[in-house]
């Protein structure tokens, strides 16, 4: 298997309280040094709660946000590449299907943009390609000349997927692609994504806060907490036998029919302006010891290809 995408120590720091001449008042580390590998044809799931840095990470991967440090390697792209260079190899499907479509353009105009600007296609070629793509996301061709507000969330998300496909990129970053949709429609979109992947040999980075969805669609899963990967492993193992206490907390918190309410009574995210020196999860962790409060644990292999950043990993 060859690597489709590789990041090495990718970091993003935001300045808070920017001032004209002087340095900013504070910095927030949205993404701590993160190294990820995604193989061709694989689906890597990325889960985490709000504020864990998953969207920041995704935006860096597609070149919408320049990283503070670290590198991204996708078919020879480097940090200096423009969004257009990125656009040919990696595309993004947005969370909010409605706000990701310009309300004043027809669907055809929206789908044409990547064909014109990334591939310089002529008119007839474009028209044929658009029909082909539109068919592949199971939308009727008469929709092409309508405006975005005429579509339901699920249809709009199909259009968003069609636009990403139009760029002919091999890798798609799917940022919470179904969380704005109702469950009955959610499955339609997820199944479409699975079919497209098989047909076109795509590679997915699937970002979500919904553990069950991520588990259902991913090969491997990375769990993010407070801007860092705390655990990584095969989708079928990671929630079934989590090694990081946070992963276990996540898995237990998800409401499941027939199981008493789980999770724990107290504790929330640390203040990003004032991050703790050691493990970010230490204050909520039942296993935390002194070392957890002083030293930040590194991501290390625990068993097989399951890795966790924990001083006291759980037993399976």
């Amino acid at each position: 298997m060859s690597l489709a995408l590789e990041t090495r120590d990718l970091t993003k720091t935001f300045d808070v309280g920017k001032r004209l001449m002087r340095p900013p008042k504070a910095q927030v580390h949205a993404v701590h040094p993160t190294s990820l590998n995604v193989e061709n044809g694989e689906t890597l799931g990325i889960v985490g709660e709000s504020g864990c840095g998953k969207s920041t990470l995704a935006r860096m991967l597609v070149g919408l946000l320049p990283p503070t440090s670290g590198t991204i390697e996708i078919e020879g792209l480097s940090g200096g590449s423009s969004p257009a260079d990125f656009g040919r190899v990696i595309q993004y499907v947005f969370q909010d299907p409605v706000s990701s479509l310009n309300p004043r353009k027809t669907i055809r105009q929206i789908l044409e943009a990547p064909l014109i600007h990334l591939h310089g296609m002529g008119r007839t070629e474009r028209s044929a390609r658009i029909d082909e793509i539109f068919d592949s996301v199971s939308l009727r061709p008469e929709f092409l000349d309508r405006y975005p507000h005429e579509f339901s969330g699920g249809q709009a998300q199909r259009i968003g997927i069609a636009r990403a496909l139009a760029a002919n990129a091999r890798i798609l970053v799917l940022d919470e692609p179904v969380s704005a949709l109702d469950v009955s429609v959610q499955a339609q979109v997820l199944n479409l994504l699975a079919d497209l992947k098989d047909e076109l040999g795509l590679t997915y980075l699937f970002i979500s806060h919904d553990l069950a969805v991520v588990e259902a669609v991913s090969d491997r899963v990375a769990v993010l907490y407070f801007g860092a990967v705390v655990e990584e492993g095969r989708a079928e193992n990671i929630f079934a036998s989590p090694r990081h206490p946070y992963t276990r907390l996540l898995a237990e918190s998800a409401p499941v029919v027939g199981r008493p309410i789980g999770g724990q009574a107290q504790g929330e995210l640390p203040d990003p302006m004032n991050p703790p020196p050691g493990c970010a999860f230490a204050s909520r962790c039942p296993r935390a010891t002194d070392i957890c409060r002083t030293d930040r644990p590194e991501l290390r292999p625990i068993e097989g290809d399951q890795r966790a950043a924990c001083h006291h990993p759980l037993d399976p």
Partner: peptide
């Protein structure tokens, strides 16, 4: 339609 945690990778039902 609701995916349940712990069932691994699978096809989901849709309406």
């Amino acid at each position: 339609c609701v995916p349940e945690l712990g069932a691994g990778r699978r096809e989901l039902h849709a309406i």
